[in-house]
């Protein structure tokens, strides 16, 4: 009874949750990410390169509205670098003493400014499509980072007979294949400061690594803590197994 229950439940609950999404997806290529596995951590160099790509390509249309500049400490920037990085952006502030809004250079305590003042403006500038905020996009799409890379790499000429609407682009991995975002990544879109070869795939993977960090800024802390908590709980369970056994050993079975 017991054993049958446990195995069944474990197998099926896990299977169920996973299968729910597997059903209708287009197969996307899977990559190895440095943060995968029990001891994997966010690849800071890749995330820094990803930030470079984000700044050069993505931020003209996509916001990062939950990310403060100071958060970038988590991918290895120091205070001065963050200050300089933030100062490249203009932030709307105010009202001042005359009641006027004004622009000032961003500070580490500011968030990445949105490229558009509101959704209507964003749609107007993008042929009716709304470029989503990218802060948590890595968790907000089935397939996660692999999907983000696949989407960047998936621009193709549409197959014969495929009717592409005006202002849309064909993408092999986008649901329905008609995407409003044109292909933005090509080889050598940016020159990496660390000398990594700037291929299109490299750009896509780096920006994905960066977006993983923006989606889970406490990722490394969480897993580091997880290892300790799990070990502690295993020891605790072991101790209580001993206690339980010592107690019940003397219970006359019958």
């Amino acid at each position: 009874m017991m054993r049958a229950f446990t195995t069944l439940a474990a197998a099926v609950t896990i299977g169920l949750a996973g299968s729910a999404w597997a059903a209708e997806q287009i197969e996307i290529p899977e990559y190895r990410w440095s943060h995968e596995g029990v001891y994997g951590t966010i690849d800071r160099a890749a995330a820094q390169r990803g930030l470079q790509v984000f700044q050069a390509v993505c931020q003209s249309c996509h916001g990062l509205k939950y990310v403060y500049f100071r958060t970038l400490k988590g991918i290895g920037y120091d205070d001065d670098q963050i200050k300089a990085l933030a100062a490249e952006y203009e932030i709307e502030d105010g009202p001042d003493e005359w009641g006027e809004m004004f622009y000032r250079p961003a500070r580490p305590t500011d968030i990445f400014p949105d490229p558009f003042p509101n959704e209507a403006a964003a749609r107007a500038a993008n042929g009716g499509a709304y470029p989503p905020d990218l802060s948590v996009i890595a968790k907000g799409r089935p397939g996660g980072l692999d999907y983000i890379v696949a989407l960047q790499m998936g621009y193709e000429i549409e197959p014969d007979g495929f009717e592409l609407a005006d202002g849309k682009y064909y993408n092999a991995y986008f649901p329905g294949h008609q995407i409003s975002m044109p292909q933005m990544l090509f080889d050598e879109v940016v020159e990496y400061q660390d000398g990594t070869e700037p291929t299109m795939l490299q750009h896509a993977k780096d920006v994905a690594a960066f977006l993983w960090f923006t989606a889970e800024p406490h990722y490394d802390t969480r897993k580091e803590m997880g290892v300790r908590v799990v070990i502690f709980l295993v020891v605790l369970a072991g101790l209580f197994f001993g206690v339980k056994r010592a107690l019940w050993r003397n219970v006359k079975k019958h």
């Binding site: 029990v38 969480r222 997880g226 799990v230 209580f240 339980k244 107690l247 019940w248």
Partner: peptide, 23 residues
């Protein structure tokens, strides 16, 4: 008897729970 047995069972349960929460 039951409290210790329950606690042991709970900590085993908690290990699985923690694996989900942290990983």
């Amino acid at each position: 008897y039951a409290t210790m047995k329950d606690l042991y069972a709970f900590f085993v349960f908690a290990v699985i729970f923690a694996v989900f929460v942290f990983f």
